[in-house]
Design a protein around this nucleic acid. Structure first.
Length: 429
RNA sequence: GUGUCUGUAUGCUAAUGGCAAGCAGCGUGGCCGUGACCCACGUGAUCCGGAUUCGAAUUCCGGCAGACACCCCA
């Protein structure tokens, strides 16, 4: 009996990045690395999984991520591990573990890689997705906040994103936030009847979230609610004012959005998001903030830090949305065509030599007809072709053809490589 | 996790419950040693499982996957 084996498919929400798109990813990362280097950031690479406890304590017990979105499993020793749902906790763990702060007071790090959250996939949202995470650790001052935001703004510009918006807020610190939270809860309790069912849950669990609700009646309630700005303590107020004035000085447009309450427990003071309205419901392209309390949560000494995460998929989606037609790739390199099996060894040798000289070069490996080989050369957009057949071999020659003009002529086999390295290699049709 | 819509070849699009077609792609040939244009031929599919039926791509149920929205976030 021939059992038909079911083709095994990829897992939900974890898309493959195919050859035709991997170039865009490489470009995206190359630009990021270049810009980050200019600002003095160094790459750090941490494992894709950590002890579960790190995320529970670092991100916060009551957050959606910890409550329902983590990929958690037991390893063979019975230890609970979790695929990282975000980068900051891992990065700070490594920072502590290797005493990275010992060498200088301000440490600038970035991390590029996949993150994992068990959410229902949607446009702009995946279960495995990719972030470029940037963190400046060690300084509490507003100057760092401003530079970090300026860096992000700069980077988005270099990528070519247009039409994005910067939302900024201060959510206070352990001194002033509790008072605001209390005032808000008191207010919301008084308007309980006007709130949607979801917001009743929020009221108990994470009341400030009500500010984010999209239900019209909730928005009406939120509009009249006490605002965080009225409750900020003097140091927080001053910090926020300085950040804003520095951004003004850099001509970075922003608007204060008092409803920008981010979902992770560790944020203090500055929070920000870059939004692209064309993306639909998942419109945050990058977001972050200051988290002066995180390190203590995971057992370290008080350590101020600020950072952000960029959603790579959302950057690419934004660029795709604003792009017209992709330009045709340039004609480049050399295709060596052969006629007859006896010509192959010389052709392979020639191609290897061209590659070692730095040229893009290919030879047919399937003993196809000359016609088929020429079709291939054209399809793959090679700038030149070299034809090696019995005629040429007998005379110690090769035929060099310019695929754009169609002109061709014979020359000694030994001169082909030299000639090709001198010819203009790249040209657009 | 909830809801709505959708799954036909590599891609796009057809087919009253009754022979699964077309265009593009790819391959080969026309041109016995020359690509791009043209022509001919070839290639290849009903997501999976069950039910109803003489008969299912089509109807129904379940699963899986995708899109969109909620929740929330990158």
């Amino acid at each position: 009996m021939l059992e038909v084996v079911q083709l095994i498919k990829g897992v939900r929400g974890a898309p493959d990045i195919l050859p035709e798109e991997s170039g865009r990813w490489q470009g995206l990362e190359a630009v990021a690395r270049d810009v980050l280097d200019r600002y003095g950031y160094a790459e750090i690479r941490t494992p894709a999984f950590e002890r579960t406890e790190l995320f529970v304590r670092g991100i916060g017990e009551g957050t959606d991520i910890v409550e329902k979105e983590m990929y958690t499993f037991e390893d063979r020793g019975g230890e609970s591990l979790t695929l990282r749902p975000e980068a900051t906790a891992s990065l700070m763990r490594a920072y502590m573990e290797h005493s990275l702060g010992a060498k200088s007071s301000l440490v600038k790090l970035y991390l590029i890689g996949p993150m994992f959250r068990h959410e229902r996939p949607q446009s702009g949202r995946f279960r495995q997705f990719h972030q470029i995470d940037v963190e400046a650790v060690g300084s509490p001052g507003p100057a760092v906040d401003a530079e970090v935001i300026a860096l992000l703004h700069h980077l988005l510009g270099v990528w070519g994103l247009t039409g994005i918006r910067l939302d900024l807020n201060s959510i206070g610190d352990p001194v002033c936030r509790p008072a605001y939270r209390q005032a808000f809860v008191t207010y919301a309790e008084a308007h309980r009847n006007a709130l949607c069912p979801d917001c009743h849950v929020r009221l108990a669990k994470n009341p400030l979230r009500i500010l984010d609700c999209k239900v019209p009646t909730c928005q009406e309630v939120a509009a009249e609610a006490p605002t965080i700005s009225a409750y900020l303590c003097e140091p927080c107020r001053e910090h926020f004012a300085t950040v804003r004035s520095l951004l003004d000085c850099l001509k970075i447009e922003h608007r204060v959005n008092e409803r920008l309450v981010r979902g992770l427990d560790y944020y203090t003071r500055t929070t920000f998001e870059f939004l692209n309205p064309v993306l639909g419901a998942q419109n945050a392209v990058a977001g972050g903030g200051r988290y002066d309390g995180l390190v203590q949560e995971i057992g370290g000494p008080p350590t101020p830090a600020i950072g952000f995460a960029i959603g790579a998929e959302r950057i690419l989606a934004s660029l795709e949305a604003q792009e017209a037609a992709p330009e045709a790739p340039a004609y480049t390199g050399v295709y060596v065509a052969t006629v007859g099996a006896e010509a192959f060894p010389a052709a392979l040798d020639l191609v290897q030599g061209l590659r070692k000289r730095g040229l893009r070069a290919a030879v047919d490996l399937e003993a196809r007809s000359l016609k088929g080989q020429m079709r291939q050369a054209n399809k793959d957009r090679y700038r030149y072709s070299v034809i090696l057949g019995s005629d040429e071999l007998a005379r110690g020659q090769a035929t060099l053809k310019d695929m754009l003009s169609g002109e061709q002529h014979a020359l000694p086999l030994g001169e082909v490589a030299d000639r090709l390295t001198r010819l203009p290699d790249r040209e657009n049709a």
